[in-house]
Design a protein around this nucleic acid. Structure first.
Ligand SMILES: [Zn+2]
Length: 679
DNA sequence: GCAAGGTC
């Protein structure tokens, strides 16, 4: 060690990069130990050491087997997890730098996790009684200096709330995971590692419900017109501004009337010019959505690449929810850096010619980090193709935020026949603006003539068409992420990984474009719904949040919250164990719906025999939906059951399970008919 | 071994 450390102050930041910024603000000198950086120097005539951790160094753990399990302690992460071996050097560094220190400063992100990260390190290597808290929300030199000179006392309530969050998730997660592993081990006679948790389980339930609805879907039918007109020698299809008909005869007679008259009248024509502002710079979810939309990357892949780019200093911190750039950012310098890259040179120079650089901002924010932006450094030679693509998105979206609005002209002609209205609409991008910087938007250009009220257009085709109601859209990994974000579960750093985990456990699979639920997934959901309903609902997160808030406010304590949840879990786990152990295998089979009678379509256990059909639960649901829709189809199309089935079998919106049932019913019917003929 | 949360 270069300096003899004694009676000094240790400042702990959440990550080495934040530590470096703090050190710069305090004018410290950089050193290395165990391959890791730390900084030393005099501040206000006191010796100060700044060090960065790598997030949590400690985690909850227990040696006890079985469940209910209510005893745990904090241990170094590398004790629990081999992949955390790299943290050993951080431990060695901390223990060296904390030795003989007289004061400690927690400079981790100012949120409850940051409070826990810093607290656990100070508790282990120093003394929390001699600790203070540094509060800042951006890493600008001014703000960091101010925060250092205006330290706050340790917020014990915030630390307790953070510790409580860890304990609650551990208690719920570990206990229910073990309960699941237990019951499935019994059923399948082999050890299986299953999991459940506050974030993953509501996500699994959401995907399962959606998958069931989509795959047992049976469409309704209505009737509509398809009208084509000719204007200046070109044909255009019109859009109907009226709802489809329930009654086929009404649609037919309207079609007949239009065919007879062969002309429609223009009611009005509207031209609107719309200015579309640039989209704001990326937060992580937006980057994940766009990388998925444009390149088909999974959220996990995008996050991994963004992390690489961040560690190579090419982009700023990626695990952020903010759509706002820091006010103090030197954008001119960054854009000048980007201008040295050939691909962006011309675009960047256009921006540099502006007097004022004013980026658009989004609504979303983050307590500790700004939106993602390029740093302007660029050793681009070695970037792999996928990293280059993500980098390109970040650069372009950043540049676009300083650019001008796009200008789009929208034309809408309203055309009438009696009281029925049709529209012929289109749009054209008149001025590209920011779309040149970010050329990934699909503004559909459709050029159409601008008509005048009173004009008459010639009809060239009128058709009556059947329209079918649509099933719910299936989930992808990306739309799962969107759902999690929209209901407020998980964080930027964890959502992608939690989604991958549901696949790794074998609950979900992707065989086509959309996510499918496996048999195991269905059964896990069934057990959770039966015994651990709380864990299937996003409301548990809301409840946690309110409890943690109360701890921060001081209106309840961690001890109280934990003892209540232990009691609640004990009751639930006792009931669970009683059912599956005392009442034997039959009871377990009953809960999972397992029996000896096989579904005639898929071979899984039969739920209830209805109409003499041996069908499992999902096929039965599909069958009931098919029966339910028949009344409407019969009335509207005046068709019998067999014809109904044949019509259904040809519709692409029919759910996959419904299709299997329809085909099965058709085959039964064919067998019957051929037998009749044989007689 | 199971969670969810940090970050390399
Ligand atoms: Zn079946």
């Amino acid at each position: 060690m270069v300096v003899d450390l004694k009676g000094h102050t240790v400042v702990v930041a959440e990550k080495p990069r934040a530590a470096a910024k703090i050190a710069t603000a305090l004018n410290l000198k950089k050193y290395n130990m165990f391959g890791l950086p730390y900084w030393v120097g005099m501040v206000n005539s006191k010796l100060v050491v700044v060090v960065g951790t790598a997030g949590h160094l400690f985690t909850l753990s227990s040696d006890e087997r079985g469940y209910p399990i209510f005893n745990y302690k904090w241990v170094p992460r590398w004790v629990e997890n081999d992949e955390a071996r790299f943290l050993v050097n951080y431990f060695k560094l901390m223990s060296k730098l904390f030795k003989n220190a007289s004061e400690y400063i927690n400079a981790c992100d100012y949120d409850i996790e940051g409070s826990v990260i810093g607290y656990m390190i100070i508790r282990n290597f120093g003394d929390p009684k001699k600790a203070k808290r540094m509060k800042f929300s951006s890493l600008t030199l001014e703000e960091l200096r101010y925060a250092y000179n205006n330290l706050k006392p340790i917020d014990w309530n915030m630390i307790d709330a953070g510790l409580c969050r860890h304990e609650l998730d551990w208690l719920w997660g570990i206990n229910v995971s073990r309960a699941l592993s237990d019951v499935f081990g019994k059923v399948y006679m082999r050890r299986t590692i299953l999991s459940a948790g506050r974030v993953q389980s509501p996500t699994l339930v959401e995907v399962t419900n959606n998958f069931l609805n989509a795959s047992t879907f049976v469409p309704d039918v209505k009737f509509s017109l398809r009208v084509k007109v000719s204007i200046n020698g070109r044909n255009y299809a019109l859009e109907n501004l009226f709802d489809p008909f329930e009654d086929l005869d009404l649609a037919k007679s309207l079609a007949e009337n239009i065919r007879r008259v062969k002309k429609l009248e223009v009611l009005e024509s509207n031209v609107t010019d719309v200015y579309v502002d640039p989209l704001p710079p990326f937060n992580l979810p937006d980057l994940q959505y766009e990388a998925s939309r444009i390149y088909g990357y999974t959220p996990y892949r995008t996050l991994s690449i963004a992390e690489e780019l961040y560690l190579e200093s090419l982009i700023s911190y990626p695990r952020t929810n903010s759509q706002k750039l820091p006010r103090s950012l030197n954008n001119r310098e960054i854009i000048s850096g980007i201008a040295k890259i050939k691909e962006y040179s011309a675009l960047a120079k256009e921006l540099l010619a502006k007097d004022i650089l004013m980026p658009t901002e989004g609504r979303k924010d983050d307590p500790a980090h700004p939106a993602i932006y390029p740093t302007g450094y660029h050793p681009l030679r070695d970037l792999k193709v996928d990293a280059l693509k993500i980098y390109d998105l970040v650069v372009r979206r950043y540049l676009a935020s300083f650019s001008d609005p796009a200008y789009v002209r929208k034309v809408k002609n309203v055309i009438t026949f009696e009281t029925y209205r049709f529209s012929l609409s289109g749009s054209k991008v008149m001025s590209n603006g920011w779309l040149r910087y970010y050329p990934y938007m699909n503004f559909i250009t459709r050029e159409i003539p601008i008509l005048r009220a009173g004009d008459v257009v010639e009809v060239v085709e009128v058709k009556v068409v059947s329209t079918y109601s649509r099933p719910p859209q299936g989930y992808t990994k990306t739309s799962m992420l969107k759902w999690m974000e929209s209901v407020g579960i998980g964080t930027e750093a964890t959502r992608a990984e939690i989604i991958e985990n549901l696949f790794r456990r074998g609950y979900l699979k992707t065989s086509s474009k959309y996510v499918e639920v496996t048999d195991l997934g269905f059964q896990v959901v069934k057990v959770l719904n039966t015994f651990f309903t709380d864990l299937t609902n996003v409301e548990l997160t809301r409840k946690f949040e309110s409890l943690l808030n109360n701890i921060v406010k001081g209106s309840t304590t961690r001890e109280l919250v934990i003892s209540e949840v232990k009691q609640l879990l004990k009751n639930k786990l006792d009931i669970f164990k009683e059912r599956i152990w005392k009442e034997g295998d039959e009871e377990v089979s009953k809960i999972l719906g397992i029996n000896k009678v096989k579904c005639r379509i898929c071979g899984k256990s039969v739920h209830t025999v209805i109409d003499g059909l041996q069908l499992c639960e999902v096929h039965l649901t599909a069958y009931n939906n098919i029966k339910y829709r028949y009344d409407a189809w019969k009335q509207k199309l005046r068709i019998n059951w067999d014809d109904y089935l044949i019509k259904l079998s040809k519709i692409k919106y029919l759910g996959s399970y419904s299709k299997e049932v329809v085909n099965y019913l058709i085959s039964i019917s064919n067998e019957k008919n051929s037998k009749l003929r044989g007689l």
